[in-house]
């Protein structure tokens, strides 16, 4: 690549060199991100059945959407899912990463153990967990019963967990609006946390190893206790990583599909539609018999806007507390 080397030496060619390196990634991003987003935006104004545009409908699909109770209930389900997965996943993966950052024996083994779920096919993971949650043959209920607990329906339980806790405490009444996510959704959330922490741990570990040892040494010389070291040194210096993990986990949680598709039902999204998240709702509207891709595109666009605005809000709120 002597000609490239020559190009680089001539300073005025630098933008061109940069462009040269950016083109491959650029093509991929434009083809697989920008074009689909733009076409979804356009399609959302049309009636599209089986890949054919049947006519321009303007904003009608958006108006239908805002009158569709299933749309709002699936948004609510997604909100429960995100609220269930993100904080727990962040906390557990940070905890594990800090522990794995110590000089302990068999470190490689532990790291492998935590990372294994990430590299296992999500399909296989979902099928195995579906068996674990099986009300009659599942491992989880077996363990519960061995320890004197009650078998639960797990993925087949449509009742909200707050309502279940209330009835467990002997309260016969509970306000209808506050029943909480169904136990079935909680089961899916547990799997998502289990599956996701491995990846987050690796990111946190990289972040932890980026913190120069001098700071820890200085803190120790000053007589800081481990808690002080964590909150005064590790936590602030880790904040860019934490911020990144927070953002990426939130975004991927909003987009959950595979576990729902494979673990719940039949019909998928059950019991009683309590696990029907927004992306599955979109898929159903677009690809089921009689589906309308335009309507599904409208849902996709709303989801895009929700994630985008949430990301911007997170940046505003959190970034001021991030130390780069």
């Amino acid at each position: 690549m002597i000609w490239l080397e020559n190009l680089r030496r001539k300073k005025f060619m630098d933008p061109l060199t940069a462009a040269f390196y950016l083109v491959p990634a650029g093509i991929i991003v434009v083809t697989f991100r920008m074009v689909p987003i733009a076409s979804a935006f356009i399609l959302s104004f049309f009636d599209v059945k089986m890949g054919r545009i049947r006519g321009f409908v303007g904003l009608a699909q958006y108006l239908d959407l805002f009158r569709d109770p299933t749309f709002f209930s699936s948004l609510g389900t997604t909100a429960y899912y995100v609220a269930g997965v993100v904080p727990a996943s962040l906390f557990l993966s940070l905890l594990a990463a800090v522990l794995l950052n110590q000089k302990i024996r068999a470190l490689g083994f532990y790291r492998t153990v935590f990372f294994l779920p990430v590299v296992t096919s999500l399909v296989a993971v979902s099928m195995v967990w579906k068996w674990i949650f099986h009300p009659r043959l599942g491992l989880l209920n077996y363990v519960f019963e061995v320890f004197g607990g009650n078998a639960m329906l797990w993925l087949e339980e449509p009742r909200g967990i707050f309502e279940m806790m209330a009835s467990g405490l002997g309260w016969s009444w509970w306000p209808d609006g506050f029943v909480g996510p169904s136990l079935a959704l909680i089961a899916v959330i547990i799997v998502a946390i289990w599956r996701g922490i491995g990846y987050n741990i690796v990111i946190f570990l990289a972040g932890l190893q980026n913190i120069p040892d001098q700071y820890y040494e200085a803190a120790r010389i000053d007589g800081a206790n481990p808690r002080g070291v964590f909150w005064r040194v590790t936590w602030p210096l880790l904040s860019p990583t934490t911020f990144y993990v927070l953002l990426s986990t939130t975004i991927t949680s909003f987009q959950v599909f595979t576990q729902i598709y494979l673990m719940t039902g039949p019909p998928v999204g059950g019991p009683m539609g309590t696990t029907k998240v927004i992306v599955y709702y979109l898929f159903e509207k677009g690809f089921d018999a009689g589906g309308n891709m335009g309507y599904a595109s409208a849902v996709a666009l709303i989801l895009f806007l929700i994630i985008l605005s949430l990301t911007l809000v997170q940046r505003r709120l959190v970034e001021s507390r991030v130390y780069y």
């Binding site: 059945k49 890949g51 690809f287 018999a289």
Partner: peptide
Amino acid sequence: SQKIMAAVAAGEPPDLAQVYEAWTENL
């Protein structure tokens, strides 16, 4: 159903498929 609808939209349907009456009506 989902595979048939996607394949038809992509212009690559199979030659034969099992279908419910409702899907036939769409097709």
